[in-house]
Lab assay of single mutants.
Amino acid sequence: MIQEPALPPGWEMKYTSEGVRYFVDHNTRTTTFKDPRPGFESGTKQGSPGAYDR
């Protein structure tokens, strides 16, 4: 089984109701579709995929 590298501290991976993966940075309280791990580009969309909830 291939294991992906861990997200940076304070980051979480979530999915929209449509199943699109996005990332929550709890450090800055922002969201992005761009994977924060080096070498992982998950898309070019920018903006908030939804309300920030902790």
Rank of each mutant, 00 (worst) to 15 (best):
M1C: 02
M1W: 00
M1L: 10
M1H: 15
I2E: 09
I2H: 06
I2Y: 04
I2V: 07
I2G: 07
I2M: 09
I2Q: 11
I2D: 03
I2A: 08
I2C: 07
Q3L: 10
Q3N: 15
Q3G: 10
E4S: 09
E4I: 09
E4C: 13
E4P: 10
P5V: 15
P5S: 15
P5N: 15
A6V: 13
A6K: 13
L7C: 10
L7R: 00
L7W: 02
L7F: 13
P8R: 04
P8W: 01
P8A: 05
P8D: 04
P9Y: 07
P9D: 15
P9A: 13
P9L: 12
P9E: 14
G10N: 15
G10A: 04
G10D: 08
G10W: 04
W11T: 02
W11V: 06
W11A: 01
W11C: 02
W11N: 01
W11S: 01
E12R: 02
E12I: 02
E12G: 04
M13K: 03
M13P: 04
M13I: 13
K14S: 06
K14C: 05
K14L: 14
K14P: 00
K14I: 07
K14M: 13
Y15H: 04
Y15P: 01
Y15C: 11
Y15M: 06
T16K: 01
T16Q: 02
T16P: 00
T16I: 02
S17Y: 01
S17A: 10
S17E: 14
S17M: 10
E18T: 09
E18M: 03
E18N: 06
E18W: 01
E18H: 09
G19H: 05
G19W: 02
G19C: 06
G19S: 06
G19Q: 05
G19E: 03
V20P: 00
V20F: 03
V20C: 08
V20R: 08
V20G: 08
V20T: 12
R21E: 06
R21K: 09
R21Q: 08
Y22I: 02
Y22P: 00
Y22K: 01
Y22H: 02
Y22N: 01
Y22E: 01
F23Y: 11
F23T: 00
F23E: 00
F23C: 00
F23G: 01
F23Q: 00
F23I: 00
F23W: 07
F23N: 00
V24G: 00
V24E: 07
V24N: 03
V24I: 07
D25W: 00
D25C: 02
D25N: 07
D25V: 00
D25M: 00
D25H: 02
H26E: 03
H26I: 05
H26D: 02
H26K: 05
H26M: 03
H26W: 03
H26G: 03
N27F: 07
N27D: 03
N27P: 01
N27Q: 10
N27V: 05
T28N: 05
T28Q: 03
R29C: 06
T30A: 06
T30Q: 06
T30E: 05
T30D: 05
T30G: 03
T30K: 06
T31F: 00
T31H: 01
T31V: 04
T32C: 01
T32V: 02
T32R: 01
T32P: 00
T32H: 05
T32I: 01
T32F: 02
F33C: 02
F33N: 03
F33Q: 03
F33I: 02
K34I: 14
K34W: 12
K34Y: 15
K34M: 15
D35R: 06
D35Q: 04
D35E: 06
D35P: 04
D35T: 02
P36R: 00
P36Q: 00
R37I: 06
R37Q: 03
R37W: 04
R37D: 04
P38W: 07
P38H: 10
P38A: 15
P38Q: 03
G39N: 08
G39A: 14
F40M: 13
F40E: 14
F40Q: 09
F40K: 12
E41C: 01
E41D: 14
E41Y: 14
E41L: 10
E41A: 09
E41P: 07
E41R: 09
E41T: 08
E41H: 14
S42T: 14
S42K: 10
S42F: 11
S42R: 11
S42A: 13
S42W: 09
G43Q: 13
G43W: 07
G43K: 11
G43M: 08
G43I: 09
G43L: 09
T44E: 12
T44L: 11
T44A: 11
T44M: 09
T44S: 13
T44G: 13
K45H: 06
K45Q: 12
K45N: 10
K45A: 09
K45F: 05
Q46I: 11
Q46A: 11
Q46K: 12
Q46T: 09
G47Q: 12
G47N: 06
G47P: 13
G47Y: 05
G47M: 13
G47A: 14
S48C: 12
S48Q: 12
S48N: 11
S48Y: 08
P49W: 07
P49H: 14
P49I: 07
P49K: 11
P49E: 14
P49R: 09
G50V: 12
G50T: 13
G50P: 11
A51C: 13
A51Y: 09
A51Q: 14
A51S: 12
A51V: 11
A51F: 09
A51D: 13
Y52Q: 13
Y52F: 14
Y52T: 14
Y52A: 12
Y52I: 14
Y52R: 13
Y52S: 14
D53F: 05
D53W: 04
R54I: 02
R54G: 14
R54P: 13
R54M: 09
